[in-house]
Design a protein around this nucleic acid. Structure first.
Lengths: 184, 184
DNA sequence: GTCTATAATTTGATAGAC
DNA sequence: GTCTATCAAATTATAGAC
């Protein structure tokens, strides 16, 4: 379900922010309603249950990332530039959004999430790994499939972890120091 | 505050488990009380506020890790064995505990945590980095300080991220594939 | 130290008016 | 589509008996 009207997209927007700061267990429908300027019953009209909202927030986040990243096989952009673009997105979480990656936050909570929400988080990771594998293959076309996946997993994991540590320690340089090792 | 009696340590124990599964915002004093077999008022007797409990759970977790890791300069153990020991601890979270690292979970939630709790999480990361820096210095004593810290940060971040991704995707091999790159 | 009882607030969710 | 009103349950926390 894509946001069809203004209120729905506002709800998704503020819910995403809330979850990225406090987690799925850390926000309420009344929080969302207050942020949007409506009542919680109206939020339930658009998203009957909290799981519905969670799934749609996660799905929209994934689609937005994929759109930002673009086609990993687009030859108008170098593979290394694509890799940098990927890293930049996490850097934006830290600097611009001042929030966690949504998938990282809900991934940590995964085992206490409604099943449908947890599956949507897993989908985010799957698509990230597939995109990164394609990019890494362009960087080294002779690389074995297993090694490509290992590289994709490694970058994804490190960026997620770096975001947590940098934010907890209140030091953005920590993220920059870690992520800079992936651009040569 | 170390756990002085049986009830206190049981509370800390079940609270740790709860937080590592559902996060700081995902457990209640009644949950803890039910797990221990007492009433929530009794939990408040030992830990007046949720922040008190959170701080003490995090502190105990850190102390337990440091005790497990041991002296990073102990020459009876090779530096590489210490590194493997460090990685093993995260592997245990995944396999034995079937839970997140406590610091990773609360680190993700950091910006919505009571300040005292967030500080305790930051302390965990600081001590981890210091321990890893010492071990990496033993592996390459000519390495510059900045590079030692970079290596420490990288390993810490990657293991935390790998734990999230492996758990969310329900695939322990993912963690093993990522972490194996750090042992040569 | 643990209990019962309770306060004051918040939660996810629904019924029904407009 | 948004509202008021409400529900039943859960939340953090305290007072006071035993």
């Amino acid at each position: 379900m894509a946001a069809k009207n203004d209120t729905q997209s506002k709800i998704l927007d503020v819910a995403e922010t809330r979850i990225r700061v406090s987690g799925y267990n850390g926000f309420s429908f009344r929080d969302i309603a207050a942020d949007v300027g409506i009542k919680s019953a109206s939020v339930h009209y658009h998203f009957p249950t909290k799981a519905d909202l969670g799934v749609n927030v996660m799905h929209g986040y994934t689609e937005r990332l994929l759109e930002y990243l673009g086609d990993p096989e687009d030859n108008n952009v170098s593979a290394k530039a694509l890799l940098q673009r990927y890293i930049d997105r996490y850097h934006q979480c830290l600097i611009k959004d001042k929030a966690m990656c949504l998938a990282c936050m809900m991934g940590a909570e995964a085992s206490s999430l409604p099943e449908v929400v947890a599956q949507e988080v897993a989908r985010f990771f799957e698509l990230n790994i597939a995109w990164l594998k394609t990019v890494y293959q362009r960087i080294d076309s002779n690389e074995k499939k297993k090694k490509l996946k290992a590289k994709a997993l490694h970058l994804l994991a490190t960026l997620q972890g770096a975001l947590i540590i940098a934010r907890t320690m209140g030091n953005t340089k920590i993220f920059e120091r870690i992520s800079s090792e992936f651009v040569h």
